[in-house]
Amino acid sequence: MAERKWHLPVIVGLALVLATGPLVLSSYWIGLLTQIVVLAILAMSLDILLGYTGLPSLGHAGFFGVAAYGVAVLSTTYRADFWTSVLTALLVGIALSAALGLIVSHVRDVYFLMITLALGMVLWGVSYRWIPVTGGDNGISGIPSLEAHAGLPLAGPAVFYYVTLAVFLACAALMRVLVRSPFGLTLRGIRENEARMKSLGFNTWLHCYLSYVIAGAFASVSGVLWAYYNGFVSPTYLDLTASSELFLMVTLGGPATLVGPLVGAGAIVLLKNVMSAYTARWLLILGIVYIVAILAAPQGIWNLGRPKAG
């Protein structure tokens, strides 16, 4: 994982902040840390597709949003208990990615980009217009706190943060095993040269499909946590801006690494919050960040100093 000299100290530093930060920080900063960790799961899941498989999905926030809506609808309208809400929301997210995966797994490159973009926007449209279920533009509020819903003995931002961190570590470990497994290596092979992988006898369609579903599953996990974190869901969770911000986290942080998306998520969350505290023009600044990031670090922060892969 630590391929450059500066990687190891940065990883140690990040681990220290993530582990001990909430002990010393105010609840505002604990909130930001929680956001970073939840979105890092999401960004890592996109990286499985984008960085490792070479499938640029621009509708990835869709699964995140659908799982968040799952929790919201079940826990408020149907008053379902914790495990029913969480597991059903995850199942819905996974089922959706399994269904959409059938449509997108045979397309590649820029076609994949455009089709996932369109699918993502359709999901957004459903959340926006299917008012009886989703509440339309108003969204759904009143999601119980995770601590209360799950019946934990403790409550508060720090408790929620450590629950999130535990889920993050579990997901990160699983994804690390995944990308280093023969399966993960095959994905990288497909990214580099699909025709060659095919002629070696690999079922590349199935690999891309599974990669898409796995990424959708981890995105759903992230969506569930996000719904509990905010206590509120709205169509903005799955709009194009959300999907492309996610895309920016991965490309800015460093695709085809697992630390990169965490770095990218951290950078974007901090930037957005700090900027919106000082100026109402943060959309403008975010736009400039996109442009500068692509011009200055097209390989991503975590890949700085590495020669461009062929």
Binding site: L113, R281, I288, I294
Partner: peptide, 17 residues
């Protein structure tokens, strides 16, 4: 296509604001 797309996303936000 990827950096191009990101670039146009940046401009979309810029133009919106």
């Amino acid at each position: 296509p990827l950096p191009q797309m990101m670039m146009t996303m940046g401009f979309a936000l810029l133009f919106r604001d």
